[in-house]
Amino acid sequence: MSKIEEVKAKVEIGKTKLVPALVQEALDEGSTPAMILQAMVDSMGVVGDKFSKGEIFVPEMLIAAKAMAKGVDVLRPLLAGDSETSLGTCIIGTVAGDLHDIGKNLVAMMIESAGFTMVDLGVDVPAEKFVEAIKENERVTLVACSGLLTTTMPALKEAVQTIKAAYPDQKVIVGGAPVTPEYAAEIGADGFAPDAGSAAVKAKEIISV
């Protein structure tokens, strides 16, 4: 097994302590940073798929994402300024009136693992704050809005519509327990994902990668 294949395998099973050294060994073996990054992104794709199918659970997904993050730390100095390896910036937040962060955090980790640069606005985010963040950050390719409470569904709608009013071409995905694909379409979102694993797939699909 080549080192890059080993990186891929160890990220998938969340070996946080082994991945950094393996990434370095893969570099020494001649793999480019972009190749190694892509291998880890592919691993996380497998992890996300297993999570969506119920074959693994949140801790297993988290340690895989953590292992990848450790690997990215090794690559970061070598990738600096290499915009081709990033799918752009994704702004994420839980909408106004809602304090739940777990779904939003999991989605953030998986979208980051897919190759986006994340800007996390936190919880209880007013619609205007999403718009400000689009303005303040470079190359925002995606906005992800989360809402867990049925009572905050109007806030989800307001967030999407406020973003679309300011930036009509901005891609927006939504998710959370009460959200359905029909509701997402009704409020004008570009996509919906039922869980963190499929959110990463949907994110890439929406920006047409």
Partner: peptide, 11 residues
């Protein structure tokens, strides 16, 4: 936090 709290199960 969720990330470290759940990763602790393995780590």
């Amino acid at each position: 936090g969720w990330v470290d709290g759940l990763c602790a199960i393995y780590e």
